[in-house]
């Protein structure tokens, strides 16, 4: 290997640091060397997220081989993600196996809550990290080892910005928003809402006490991301949760019957 540019071509014998001839293009190395002063330029043209995307692809294949459906759950902190997940686990767990990967900066509080609700859970503490990445999720999936045909919820770190960028290998992305956050969130965080297959608008039981413009919320979301399904729900009262469960059942791979 050329020790100066790191490409696959063998260095041409001893001598100064870069004695071998650099052709304009090394076969198969995928990069071009351009002349450039004392040193030289190595053209990479590489996506920064390439490694994450590769790992996400591997996760997707791992899940598909086991007919497991994974859902990337994203929200701001306090939207009611864990409460909604607890209730979902309790209501669905009897006939649809559910497992959970919990991502938080610190503590195993959420994983404990989910296990009490009756699902297997593993906790990823991201420390300084503001999002989950495909590498951490891949490790967690192998630790969790969900049964074939099950549903895996990946509870991302509470944050409406960073998680949107990182593919985890999930089958669907769900944003949990709440009416207490205000109706302007889709337009303020377009990247997150655009990436969502479903937006669960939680805490609708509090609507009578709030100045929340539901019509505007629905219109903004429809304009921003026409393919996104909006499901208003209340994890506290259980209102409209059957709509959410119906969507989940459609997503979950059917267990083949003989």
């Amino acid at each position: 290997m050329c020790t100066t540019c790191g490409c696959g071509e063998a260095a041409g014998g001893a001598g100064p640091a870069h004695a071998h001839v650099h052709p304009e293009q090394h076969d198969g190395s995928g990069h071009t060397h351009l002349p450039g002063g004392s040193g030289h330029t190595v053209v990479l043209q590489q996506k920064v997220l390439a490694r994450n995307d590769d790992l996400a692809l591997a996760n997707r294949a791992w899940l598909a081989a086991r007919t497991i459906s994974a859902i990337n759950l994203m929200s701001s902190p306090g939207a009611g993600k864990s409460a909604l997940l607890e209730r979902t686990v309790a209501d669905l767990g009897a006939d649809l196996p559910v497992a959970v990967i919990e991502g938080d900066q610190e503590t195993a509080l959420d994983a404990d809550r989910i296990e009490q609700a009756g699902a297997r859970a593993v906790q990823i503490n991201t420390g300084a990290g503001c999002h989950l990445d495909a590498g951490a999720v891949g490790e967690a999936l192998r630790r969790l080892d969900p049964v074939p045909g099950s549903l895996v919820f990946i509870e991302n770190v509470g944050n409406l910005v960073c998680p949107a960028l990182f593919d985890l290998g999930e089958q669907a992305r769900v944003v949990i928003a709440s009416v207490t956050e205000g109706a302007d969130k889709p337009l303020k965080y377009p990247q997150m809402f655009r990436a969502a297959d479903v937006v669960l608008l939680n805490k609708t039981d509090l609507l009578p006490y709030l100045d929340f413009d539901s019509v505007r919320y629905e219109a903004d979301l429809a304009a921003l991301s026409p393919g996104t399904l909006l499901l208003p729900v209340s994890a506290a009262t259980g209102a409209h949760l059957p709509d959410w469960y119906a969507w989940l059942r459609r997503l979950a791979a059917p267990i083949p019957t003989r």
Binding site: G6, V42, L44, Q46, H131
Partner: peptide, 25 residues
């Protein structure tokens, strides 16, 4: 602040492609 992770991704990717080079830019 996902830019920290993004920047780590940049440095890791360059290190992986050019492990023995002194990168100046």
């Amino acid at each position: 602040m996902h830019e920290l992770a993004i920047t780590e991704g940049v440095v890791d990717a360059v290190q992986q492609r050019l492990p023995d080079a002194t990168v100046t830019c």
